[in-house]
């Protein structure tokens, strides 16, 4: 019970920091915190062996999205 509460509070805190942060590159750090909390919550929701694959797929997808956004900002500059 308390583990679920910790994951939920971490996710809510990360979303609030994402909304009130000005720089786009710093938002990606808080998006990473949200990815950790959601990957933990996915495993806690349904303990089944295939859930490991779902958690890894979600985490790699979120990381790849951050990677693409950061690379585009590095090349083009923030507009």
């Amino acid at each position: 019970m308390i583990v679920e509460a910790i994951c939920a509070l971490a996710a809510v805190y990360a979303v609030i920091r994402i909304i009130f942060e000005k720089s786009t590159l710093k938002k990606l750090a808080y998006l990473n915190v949200l990815g950790f909390a959601v990957a933990g919550a996915i495993v806690l929701l349904l303990p089944h062996p295939i859930t490991i694959g779902a958690a890894v797929a979600y985490f790699v997808g979120a990381t790849l999205e951050s990677n693409a956004i950061a690379s585009t900002l590095a090349i083009g500059g923030e507009e």
Binding site: V15, K27, L31, L73
Partner: peptide
């Protein structure tokens, strides 16, 4: 870019 990040959320 902020719209993309929020779509990720």
């Amino acid at each position: 870019f902020n719209k993309l990040i929020m779509l990720g959320v």
